[in-house]
Structures are given as structure tokens and as C-alpha cells.
Nucleic acid binder design. Structure first.
Lengths: 241, 241
DNA sequence: CTCGTATTCCAAAGAAAACTAGAATACTGG
DNA sequence: CCAGTATTCTAGTTTTCTTTGGAATACGAG
């Protein structure tokens, strides 16, 4: 095999990873997996795809080495192969956001949807270090507003889970007299914006954590898994089961 | 437009960048562009592609925002849109090298080709800081062994250019009594390995710079452009023209 | 203005990838 | 071992991407 041919083979191999990133559906699956492990069925539902289609896309991601599988009884859990994959995904979003004007627009458009009309454009945010300090001081409640499955897969230690769609009727479960810091998936996730709007409308003091689970994982700060705290009413509800 | 639809649009936009990375040919073009600006014709020749094909691929890269064009008279020079694009490309290679076993193998295979049989597996390398220190002390000659066009597009300040295929007959142009540090494109480039083999076979003391132009640019250290130094015999040759 | 050169655009053919429904497989729990 | 469930595989259809050669365009030189 000639030099030239070897070079072509090498680039063609690299392109397998590129190809894996070359489909909106697959990026959506990666985005979901950045929150934590999930079963095929679950991913299909979350991404609104057929089961066979989802499985096929996951195979492509697996061939490219971006995800790994773990069999748990009758179901297969997919997860990201490592932090470098999150970094690659993040870098892709950075470049796209910076270089493709349509991406910036689509992002703004998406983030604006679902928020109360007239809501402030930029909500007050807290950074990671500030959050950790205020948590240590016992000043704030950390609120995870993602779907429960994602909370179970991985969440910030000490955070309570109230999915944003349940927030209006469960807002009283949050300990009163404490400020709330809400977080969701990451920079491209709208849930925490909505949550802060809801909380403020209810008279609470609330901020958005500047980063989401995706960025949190990149820092290699610890995460908790499993049911954890489901807000103040948790004891009673767990008892019912 | 519904929430769901907006989300799909957003991911589909992100996927444009992914798609651009999903072809071996395009990655090869990016790799060439990481060395500096180049014309379409030149890129086509270097990547061994048809002119129309090359143009089409470059359009895809441009649509994805990864490259920009600069018109210079009758020809168009393509260049990377920014350092973040190099970072993205590097991260892609990292993940691929780490996660896809075939990539590691293809890379080894490619890097081994063209080198003298029985050559040592790992050549002594110098890092960037060591290089800068020894250059400042006037101890070493920095040798750029890439094709002349790439040297012209961008090179390490003070480096002399002898493309590796001309090295055997031009080795005497290098100032004697000085050690040589050779560099080429980057981690996936074989030229500097070959050059060090050649230099050592000729009795010179030579090292490989651990990084190439790609990694050098990422550090934001200065680069020079233009003809620059073409080794000691340059004055005579320039005079001939 | 015309010619020559560099690049892009266009249309058609061939190749690769995506989606779908249904069959096959792998595992659990009884 | 059997039934039930989660996932993967298969095959056919449709869509998208790649390549190619030739026409069109943009520019500079004369």
C-alpha cells in the first residue's frame, strides 16, 4: 500500500467520527447522553424517533467510538464514551455558534420559546464557584428542572428534582426563605430559563446556574445518581409506594 | 413553529458543521489549510482531487463556517476561519485516536511508512519551550521540511526551509556545527520523522520538534510568512533569478 | 475590449445513508 | 423450558452526497 493510500485510509477513518456528528438526530442523541446513561427505548421517546431508527443511529455513534453500551438485564444502556466526547461536542457547538450565523439565530429562537412574554432578556446568573460557596453556606436550594430520568442518571449533589412542567403545582415543596438556583442541561437548554421565570412570578428569589449538567460534567466535579432528593415532600411520597 | 420543531432546526444547523467533518477528503483539505492559506488549484493538487470536486468540498466547508475566502486577483485563497476550527479538528483527532482502534493503527501505519527500515521507533523529541530556549541561545537551526508553499504560507520565525525530498542533496546547506530541530505539519505528519532519519544518517545531530505547525498555531505564538530563509545557499540562488 | 486563467456553477450518474416495518435475537422471570 | 420484552438485524424505498465534465463567471493583462 502506497503512502498516499495510507494517508487516505487514515483520513477516512477520522471521517467516521465526523460522519457520526453529521446528523441532527445523532447530535440530539449525544445531547441527551451528555446528561447521563439512557436505554434505547428512552432515547427514542425523548428524541421522537422510531425504535429501529434510534438503534441504527446509536450503532453509528458506537462504531465511531463516541458511545459505549452497558447491558442491564433485558435492556441496553447507552452512555458517552468519555469526557473527550463531551469536549468534542462542546467544541462543535462553539464553532457552529461562532461561525454559522443561522446557528446563533436558531439558538436564540429556541431559547426564547416557552418563556413568558416580556420576560427579561438576560436573567441573572450565578457561576459555578459562586454556587458552591453559597451551597456550602447553606444559603440556597439547588433545583434540577430536567426530566426525572435525567436527574436519576446524574445530578449535582444535593440538588432537588422538580421537572419544569411540574414546577407550577409543586413550587411550595421548595423550602421557603431560601433562594433558588435552577439548572438544566446546558447552554442550549431552555428549561432553567422557564423555571426562573416561573419562580420569580411566584415571588421567589431565583437565579439560573450559568452552566448545565453538560458543562458540570466537564469540570469533573462529582455527580450523584439515583432517586436522591425530590424536594421537601419526598418522604411522604416515597412512603406511599 | 413548535418547540420541538425549533429544537430540530437547531440541531440540524449544528449538524451542518458535523457533516462538513464527515468526509475524508474534506478533513484532508482542513489539514492542509491548518498549515496556512492556499489556492483552490493548489489544494486540489495536494489532495489529489479534481478541481470541481475540490471546489465543491470547499463550498461545503465554507457553508459550515469552517473556512473563509480571500480573493487575490484571479485566484481565491482559502484559509481556516479561526483557531477554534483548528481546536475542533484537533479534538476530533484526539477522540478518534483514543476511541477508534483503527485510527491508532492507521496512524502508526502511516507514520511508519517512508522511514528507513530499522529506524528507532521513538525518535528523541524536543518540546516547544526547550526549542525556544535553545534558539534564543543560538544553539540550534530550526528546519522546516514541509513543501515550500506551506513554508511560505506560515512558518516558525527563523526557521529555514528544505522540503524533505530535497534534503539529501541539500543537507550541506545547513550550518555545520549546529544541532538541527526539524518540524513539519503536526502529530499526524511523517515528514519530520523522515528528515531526522536522513540527518542522522548523514552524521548530523538532529531532533524532531514534538509539535508541528498545527499545534504551533494553537499556541498563538507568532509565525512568519513569505519566502524567508531558504538555508545558507539562498543568497546565491536568489541572485540567479 | 478581448483573451487567458482561476474558480464556480450545473446537470447527470453513481454511491452512500436514512427510514420503515417486520423478522430475528438476547435476555428475564416464572 | 416458555413467554414476554428490549433491542438489533434485514431488505426495500427514498433521499442525500459525491464525482465528473463542460459551461458560465470573475478577474487581470495586454
Amino acid at each position: 500500500m502506497g503512502d498516499r493510500q495510507k494517508k487516505t485510509v487514515l483520513f477516512e477513518q477520522l471521517a467516521r467520527v465526523g460522519k457520526a456528528l453529521g446528523s441532527g438526530k445523532r447530535l440530539e442523541l449525544l445531547d441527551l447522553l451528555a446528561q447521563g446513561e439512557r436505554s434505547v427505548e428512552h432515547l427514542a421517546a425523548a428524541a421522537q424517533l422510531g425504535l429501529s431508527t434510534t438503534s441504527a443511529h446509536l450503532q453509528v455513534l458506537k462504531q465511531a467510538g463516541l458511545v459505549t453500551t452497558r447491558r442491564d438485564g433485558t435492556r441496553v444502556h447507552y452512555g458517552l464514551a468519555g469526557l473527550d466526547v463531551i469536549r468534542l461536542y462542546e467544541q462543535l457547538r462553539n464553532v457552529a455558534g461562532e461561525r454559522v450565523s443561522d446557528v446563533g439565530r436558531a439558538r436564540e429562537d429556541y431559547l426564547a420559546s416557552g418563556r413568558a412574554a416580556g420576560a427579561p432578556g438576560e436573567q441573572d446568573e450565578v457561576g459555578r464557584d459562586e454556587l458552591l460557596a453559597r451551597v456550602a453556606a447553606g444559603e440556597v436550594t439547588v433545583l434540577d428542572v430536567r426530566p426525572v430520568e435525567e436527574y436519576v442518571a446524574a445530578h449535582i449533589p444535593g440538588a432537588v428534582s422538580i421537572p419544569v412542567e411540574e414546577l407550577p403545582r409543586r413550587i411550595n415543596e421548595l423550602p421557603s426563605g431560601q433562594d433558588v438556583v435552577a439548572y438544566c442541561r446546558g447552554a442550549y437548554c431552555v428549561l432553567a430559563y422557564e423555571a426562573v421565570d416561573l419562580l420569580r412570578a411566584a415571588g421567589r428569589t431565583a437565579w439560573r446556574l450559568h452552566e448545565g449538567m453538560l458543562e458540570w460534567r466537564l469540570t469533573e466535579l462529582p455527580v450523584d445518581t439515583g432517586p436522591g432528593l425530590v424536594a421537601s415532600g419526598v418522604a411522604a411520597r416515597l412512603h406511599d409506594q
